[in-house]
């Protein structure tokens, strides 16, 4: 993927959509597949620190993640769809996380929960990876230190939202990439850019492939 493409995911998506003719049948098939995929997301809880406790709270009785059909925590990466990275990831842990990501079969998504996973948080130290997106691609960032359980649930709903827009013939998103296994997600230059003070908050949108950082508005959402 060239740098140009990465910096403008909107154009890229546009390009794919125009390139692939989507007859009515294919479009309906997409809808069906996406419906099935987004309503049975199996999380792979990759909890490391404080944020993991809030992830547990999201699974416990008050917040009850089961309401969204996502309570089946797959502790094995081979049977999971969404990796939730909750907490600080050190350089010692980074290869482990990459391996777990590599072991998950496509289609797969990744949520970065909390400030530490997203940017290194307040810990700009010698040991912490400054954002897990240097190592694995991230689909949704949930802000907070820690995010409340509602925040995590909202992040999962955003993943659902993202799935809605996907197409089964989109080669970009859902291809296995064995040659990338064990490698960093970003080129060294981009890692430097991101790890500079405040770097990650500025460059995150581009890395995640999201078009903007404003929340995705769902039909039922309150507008104020």
């Amino acid at each position: 993927m060239s740098k140009q493409d990465m910096s403008d995911p909107a154009a890229q998506r546009q390009q794919i959509e125009t390139e692939i003719p989507r007859p009515w049948v294919l479009a309906r098939l997409d809808d069906l597949v996406n419906w099935a995929r987004r309503n049975s997301l199996w999380p792979m809880p990759f909890g490391t620190a404080c944020c993991a406790i809030e992830m547990m709270a999201a699974a416990a009785s008050k917040y009850d993640i089961a309401r969204y059909g996502m309570e089946r925590m797959g502790y094995t990466p081979r049977q999971a769809d969404v990796m939730i990275v909750a907490g600080r990831v050190s350089y010692k842990m980074a290869p482990v996380m990459r391996r777990i990501w590599d072991q998950m079969p496509q289609p797969k998504w990744c949520i970065s929960m909390g400030a530490c996973a997203s940017t290194g948080g307040v810990f700009d130290t010698y040991t912490l990876a400054q954002g897990i997106d240097t190592v694995v691609p991230v689909d949704v960032y949930v802000p907070g230190c820690p995010p409340r359980p509602e925040g995590l649930l909202y992040g999962l709903l955003m993943i659902q939202e993202k799935i809605k827009g996907e197409s089964i013939v989109d080669p970009r998103a859902r291809e296995e990439a064995p040659e990338a296994a064990g490698k960093a997600h970003l080129a060294p230059k981009e890692v430097e850019l991101i790890a500079a003070p405040f770097g990650n908050s500025t460059f995150q949108n581009r890395v995640s492939g999201l078009e903007s950082s404003s929340p995705i508005v769902r039909p039922g959402d309150r507008k104020d």
């Binding site: 010692k92 980074a94 290869p95 700009d124 010698y126 490698k183 890692v191």
Partner: peptide, 27 residues
């Protein structure tokens, strides 16, 4: 990179972030 709590050791480590990431994944 050395012994982190020695005073001469920089807070962010001696190597660049890119190098730290590379070494971590090359382990």
């Amino acid at each position: 990179e050395g012994y982190p709590l020695r005073k001469g050791f920089p807070l962010r480590g001696r190597f660049t972030r890119a190098e730290q990431t590379r070494r971590a994944l090359a382990r």
